[in-house]
Design a protein around this nucleic acid. Structure first.
Length: 811
RNA sequence: GCGGUCGUGGCGGAACUGGCAGACGCGCAAGACUAAGGAUCUUGUGGGUAACUCCAUGCAGGUUCAAUUCCUGUCGACCGCACCA
């Protein structure tokens, strides 16, 4: 079969008959199958795109044949740094390069032959999309979920922009790998922390990979503990957060993060220490994140000269500054218990501070810090309590004294969304000298991104130097004002696109509530696991926020989530230009066509695992489709024959139904390799029937062949359409129902049992269906080979696993 | 350091709730058809052994009538977090 012409033929037909367009009339049977949309940074589709989209399309087509009205849209996440960095390097405008890349990629995606509903296509860099991204920003602002503050933020010196915490991977920029610095800047933030608890507790109800759920949980990082107030000589109060209030009697000193606001005051109160404090704050500010976050690094710090009063013992404890305390977590201050915390122990040892043991391990003393639970000692009235009891009792006691109480803390921080870059959605805010920060009225959206901008980095936002863009009037007072020069993080664009797909042409709203409630949530979402704590978390947050604003009635965007694995280069390494191991799908598609490429991706790997690319595998798939084609075409010539159902027909019928049953289960699990194995088995059975039976039950055999085409259709769509047409059908095979299991064909008269004596296999015996356990045992024991071996011994126990095995315990 | 996932033939990979380890395919070997085959078809294919059988799911234990599957320890690979108090 000439796959190239076959593929373009059927793609044209599908387009013409609108086969892939979602039919709103069948919305009650909708199934929203979504692949993460493409990022057009490279000019072409790579193997990863194929591996995401090809097999998932097979799933979608399978569900369509099962009677679902499948909605499978596709689009482009088109704003972002790579296009801009490319522009800086080459001088080609990001809009031009992005549009060109999209054009190529879209053509390739169409040639893939997936059933994407192109009528709902989205490009996030287009006005009719980012207008609504800006609208979303304004809604969050109205709701108090978008706010501006000066804060220490992650700064990528190479991309010259701020990054969200989620975009800093091990202290490095997610995009370019530069070491991220910290910088004090005024930025827009989304208050994702308001949803920390809900984001955490709703995770459990999701049909997502457990690993991803755990990663989100850890990222949100809930910890329950206690806040404790330490009065300070200056009259201020230092609030610390601890998960171990049971160790409070062991506090040896209190530590503030160098950025803590109280530091200034302490410097004034203790002029003798001022220069030491100053020097240390300076030192901490200059240390980069990598150094500072390293656990191996030696602890450093400085005494402030000040003391705090222990809330329960009233003893004076010294106040230190140390950068092992993070200002961004908890209260930015901790109580140090050297005897029961490794970090405090290391610090105390270095600076010669006292160490007081207050937790006793069962049966003995410990010299090194003992960080587990134990019995309280040296803790006044709390002596003898267990850790758990003490944590509760001390928290209650502190509350009573007004010196603290129970407190929950999250690791999750608010999402910083300002980017000092050009290629993004402008933030729809205006700065007026008189009125302050004023939102752009919704009727004035979109705030258009100008084309003629000097996007080469200058240390500040490119838009800031575009006068025409910046200059505006204040919507409130009408006076002179300027626009916000920053653009939105692209993750804002992608945090709601799945809603826009459902109502992509709405020019009055971002989406209609009615439509969104009908079409969402997404039933199955497929994409890479690298988004676990970024896109997937942001999308959940935005969904919940929109729900609380009344725009939608659901709080989770993606009911089920599947991650595809990664296809590695033939050498087992991740594909990369530097490794020189990049496999181009184009070469193979040219030679074999898209169906065979997709089949190999499905058959050669476990979908969620991925693995190294291998050329031999793809050849074997091409051989298989040839075989199917020969078998189908040969069957067309058969005429006459008999109409009985003899054992040969029964065996074939069994093979078919066995395959149907397994495939139906496996495709649902995204287990495409085993599904195809079952199809291969069925093809082998057909071939066997064909070659072994001179006279055939022709009508039956032809029906089996047609079922094969139906079964194979989701896996090899163009190929199957062509064969379906060859067998005399006019309409698309995708309008056919997927074969359903006929359980009666799977009932056998007898089943082979493995028979064990003392757990060792001794024989395989055919046992008729429907026997009782006693009858099975009797049959087995009467079997000559077994009877011989158990002669003279007593059968003490007989374990029977129905349909599988019998284990005789003799002795 | 903490958390997680995974280690199965020469290779990719199967094995549903503990129940015949190695499905399906590649590769390899032999044969058939051929002028020829890199096409197609048939058969065989974890290892040892002449055979009875024995040994095999990273390694060492444990639970069980039965363990790739559950538990403990250990080695290795990968991923995530990383001074989070």
């Amino acid at each position: 079969m000439d796959m190239k012409s076959v593929e373009s033929k059927w793609q044209a037909k599908w387009e013409k008959t609108k086969l892939n367009v979602f039919n709103k009339k069948n919305a009650d049977k909708k199934l929203y199958v979504l692949e993460m949309f493409s990022y057009p940074s490279g000019a072409k589709l790579h193997v990863g795109h194929w591996y995401n989209y090809g097999p998932t399309d097979t799933y979608a087509r399978f569900k369509k044949m099962q009677g679902f009205e499948v909605f499978q849209p596709m689009g482009f996440d088109a704003f972002g740094l790579p296009a801009e960095n490319y522009a800086i390097k080459t001088g080609i405008h990001p809009k031009d390069s992005t549009e060109k890349n999209i054009e190529t990629m879209e053509r390739q995606l169409r040639n893939m032959g997936a059933m994407f509903d192109w009528s709902a296509e989205i490009k996030t860099c287009e006005e009719n999309y980012y207008k609504w991204t800006q609208w979303l920003f304004l809604q969050l602002y109205k709701k108090g979920l978008a706010y501006r503050k000066e804060a220490l933020v992650n700064w990528c010196p190479s991309c010259e922009t701020v990054l969200a915490n989620e975009q800093v991977i091990g202290g490095e920029c997610e995009r370019c790998g530069s070491t991220v610095l910290r910088k004090d800047m005024t930025q827009w933030f989304f208050k994702i922390t308001d949803y920390a608890e809900e984001l955490l507790s709703d995770v459990d109800g999701l049909d997502w990979p457990e690993k991803t759920k755990l990663m989100q949980k850890n990222w949100i990082g809930k910890s329950t503990g206690c806040e404790i107030l330490f009065e300070c000589e200056t009259g201020d109060t230092i609030t610390v957060f601890t998960t171990r209030p049971d160790t409070v009697f062991g506090v040896n000193y209190v530590v503030l993060a160098p950025e803590h606001p109280l530091v200034e005051k302490l410097k004034v109160a203790h002029p003798e220490q001022a220069s030491a404090i100053e020097a240390y704050v300076q030192y901490a500010a200059e240390a980069n994140d990598i150094d500072r976050l390293s656990t191996a690094r030696e602890k450093t710090g400085v005494f402030t000269g000040a003391y705090a009063i222990h809330p329960l013992t009233n003893k004076r404890v010294p106040i230190y500054l140390a950068d092992y305390v993070l200002y961004s977590y908890g209260t930015g201050a901790v109580m140090a218990v050297a005897a029961h915390d490794e970090r405090d122990y290391a610090f105390a040892t270095k600076y010669g501070l006292p160490i007081t043991q207050v937790i006793q391990k069962m049966g003995g003393e410990t010299l090194l810090p003992f960080c587990e639970d134990g019995i309280l000692v040296n803790s006044g009235e709390f002596d003898g309590l267990s850790g758990e009891e003490a944590r509760d009792a001390i928290a209650v006691h502190l509350t009573k004294l007004g010196k603290g109480g129970k407190k929950v803390n999250y690791r999750l921080r608010d999402w910083s969304v300002s980017r000092q870059r050009y290629w993004g959605a402008p933030i729809p805010m205006i700065h007026c000298e008189k009125c302050g920060v004023v939102p752009v009225p919704e009727k004035d959206l979109p705030v258009k991104l100008p084309y003629d901008v000097e996007f080469r980095p200058s240390g500040k936002s490119p838009l800031a130097s575009h006068e025409g863009f910046m200059r505006c009037n204040c919507p409130k007072c009408g006076g002179k004002a300027s626009r916000d020069p920053d653009t939105l993080d692209t993750f804002v664009c992608s945090s709601w696109y799945f809603l826009r797909y459902a109502d992509a042409h709405n020019d009055k709203q971002a989406f209609s509530t009615e439509v969104a409630n009908k079409m969402l949530p997404v039933d199955v979402y497929v994409g890479g696991s690298e988004h676990a704590c970024m896109h997937l978390l942001y999308a959940r947050f935005i969904t919940k926020a929109l729900r609380d604003m009344g725009y939608i009635n659901f709080g989770e965007p993606f009911k089920r989530l599947v991650h595809q694995g990664i296809i590695l280069g033939p050498d087992g390494n991740r594909m990369s230009k530097s490794h020189g191991n990049v496999i181009s799908p184009d070469v193979y598609i040219d030679e074999y066509g898209s169906d065979i490429f997709r089949l190999y991706l499905m058959f050669g790997f476990s979908y969620t695992e991925g693995g190294p690319w291998n050329d031999d595998g793809i050849k074997s798939i091409a051989r298989f489709t040839d075989k199917v084609e020969r078998l189908v075409l040969k069957s067309l010539e058969y005429k006459g024959g008999h109409t009985e159902k003899r054992s040969a027909e029964k065996a074939l019928d069994y093979a078919k139904n066995h395959a149907v049953k397994s495939i139906t289960r496996d495709v649902e699990l995204f287990s495409f390799n085993t599904s195809l194995a079952r199809i291969m088995e069925y093809v082998n059975a057909l071939q066997k029937y064909d070659s072994e039976n001179e006279t055939k039950n022709t009508a039956f055999y032809k029906a089996c062949i047609e079922d094969l085409i139906r079964m194979f259709a989701p896996f090899a769509p163009h190929f199957s359409e062509e064969l379906w047409e060859a067998t005399g059908h006019k309409d698309s095979v995708f309008l056919e129902a997927y074969p359903i299991v006929d359980e009666s064909a799977l009932i056998k008269d007898e089943t082979e049992y493995a028979v064990q004596i003392n757990s060792k296999i001794k024989a395989k015996i055919m046992i008729p269906e429907g026997l009782s356990d006693e009858e099975i045992q009797a049959t087995v024991c009467a079997y000559p080979e077994i009877a011989e071996q158990i002669a003279g011994k007593t059968v003490r126990k007989c374990i029977i696993v129905k349909g599988r095995l019998v284990n005789l315990i003799v002795g």
